[in-house]
């Protein structure tokens, strides 16, 4: 299925790194996953949910731990289920209770990560899972890329249908209700989407920095844009650009790919700050 992609790269790019299959895979993965981080990030930043998406990473880690303990071959499947459930629970509690969202998320996030650590250390096999903290993009397999392809398509389709409603909810919930939007389901769909993306990406990007990939491109884009269309596309471009240049830089410098990508988006963010006043 990916042969076409391999041939295309072989004939189009005259670089040394192109001969490695893991680089071709990583490149394709980046092209699929960074746009998703870009578009989901716009809503995370607009909704002030940076802490929430961070907590989702912790939930995913626990899901992986549960999967590992129960002996699943691919802990990531149980992780997806666990972190979607985790995201839904936080969303519902956030809506039903009057206590601060920060506290609600903080409580759940701490419990989740502690549970994950206890489960993993229980068998004395903590080191086996430490790779999830940093992630390894170069380890991505062909099957995983195919899965990513489907996730990519699903997110784009959902984003077409749900975006307007989500924008209303993020501006004002009561306003959204007055327009017939069921705010809780809309929020639940969105948080589940974020949970799925964060969870499947964690093995490649790592728990420690995954949130930066969601937040930084959108945070940079909002500094230099004045409407939703430009915001979305700028975030996607920044995200994809950081991803591609990060991958190549990490190849030549022999550094961790995810972290290199984050550093590049960080630099772009600070450049965007310089231009911020022109747009406000």
């Amino acid at each position: 299925m990916l042969d076409f992609w391999y041939k295309l790269l072989d004939s189009a790019l005259p670089f040394q790194w192109v001969q490695y299959e893991f680089m071709k895979n990583a490149l394709l993965a980046i092209l699929l996953i960074t746009p998703l981080f870009g578009i989901l990030g716009t809503m995370i930043v607009s909704n002030k949910m940076a802490f929430f998406s961070d907590a989702l990473g912790h939930g995913a880690f626990t899901g992986i731990a549960i999967g590992a303990i129960t002996g699943l071959v691919r802990p990531v499947f149980s992780a997806v289920i666990f972190s979607v459930a985790f995201a839904l629970i936080i969303t519902v509690i956030k809506n039903k209770s009057r206590s601060s969202t920060d506290t609600t998320i903080g409580v759940f996030s701490s419990i989740a990560v502690a549970l994950g650590l206890v489960l993993i250390s229980f068998g004395g096999s903590f080191n086996k899972y430490s790779s999830y903290l940093i992630g390894d993009l170069l380890s991505i397999s062909q099957t995983e890329i195919v899965v990513l392809l489907f996730v990519f398509a699903a997110v784009v389709v959902l984003w077409l249908f749900i975006f307007n409603k989500l924008l209303m909810v993020s501006t004002n919930k009561s306003l959204a209700s007055s327009r017939g939007v069921k705010t809780l389901p809309v929020e639940m769909i969105f948080t589940s989407m974020v949970a799925v993306i964060v969870t499947i990406s964690i093995q490649w990007v790592g728990l420690l920095i995954i949130n930066s990939l969601l937040v930084l491109p959108a945070a940079a884009a909002r500094n230099i844009t004045g409407n939703v269309r430009k915001y979305t596309f700028t975030a996607v471009i920044i995200s994809a650009f950081s991803g591609l240049s990060g991958l190549l830089a990490s190849y030549y410098m022999n550094t961790a790919t995810g972290a290199t990508i984050v550093l590049i988006s960080g630099i772009i963010f600070f450049i965007s700050l310089v231009f911020k006043n022109k747009f406000n």
Partner: peptide
């Protein structure tokens, strides 16, 4: 809403 959010009146 977040005052810095790039949502225009038209977008809303």
């Amino acid at each position: 809403f977040d005052r810095g959010t790039p949502t225009s009146v038209f977008d809303l």
